[in-house]
Write a protein that binds this DNA or RNA. Sequence first.
DNA 1: CAGGATCCAGGGAGATACTG
DNA 2: CAGTATCTCCCTGGATCCTG
Lengths: 126, 126
Amino acid sequence: MATVGSSCLGCPMDPVLKAVTGRWTTTILWNLSTESPLRFGELMGLMPAISAKVLTDRLRMLEQNGIVLRTQKSTIPPEVSYELTTHGQDLHQALRSLHEVALKWNAEGWVPGQGFPEDQVARAAE
Amino acid sequence: MATVGSSCLGCPMDPVLKAVTGRWTTTILWNLSTESPLRFGELMGLMPAISAKVLTDRLRMLEQNGIVLRTQKSTIPPEVSYELTTHGQDLHQALRSLHEVALKWNAEGWVPGQGFPEDQVARAAE
DNA sequence: CAGGATCCAGGGAGATACTG
DNA sequence: CAGTATCTCCCTGGATCCTG
């Protein structure tokens, strides 16, 4: 059985990671976990750099995986909103933790690709 | 200021996500967070499907980002071990949460690309 | 043992244009 | 408004071979 401290030999993390991480995916989940339901256009507005195609792709994939619920009103203009399913809400804690780490590292002066200030001076000393 | 519940407009999650998620990266971090230090070959053994090149790439990137510490004994044969830095240990909670979700979803019959059992019967009913 | 160097193929991201 | 349909390009993962 999978005991605490078990390695990743046959551990179930891999497929889950594939489903919830990856470019944009985690950001979408974070947005939906802090505020929902959100409409398609609202999600676009929260992530200015994403394209409609990629957002659609990610949402479809998350929906397929039972993580996100899509609700569609067939009015004109159409109104579609997204929210986490009950299963998707299992991710709340993980997303919150990730967010906290992000805030902390930012406050500590972490720079993507360069690390923390200490790392940078250590590098400069060489 | 970044307040709690803030969206991802200029929020610091993106670069952090890039650094800690992605194929293999999170799995490596999980292994190092449950058991360390680990040698290069031990990491390989824990992730049979990874190639040496990718493992090296990921470790270098994590090292560059100040998340993983590389310790090298210049003996023959060489012995190199990896562990999380103190900053890297900030990820413990997030990794644990992710792992718990993975175990839960697995127990609930979640299938990558198909979702949960309920989703699958709902789909079959159409 | 722990890698560095190359080469290659595939897929995902992005831009653009169109639609119910 | 909320997509869909293509097309291209680049990046990443994987395989193979070589080395301190």
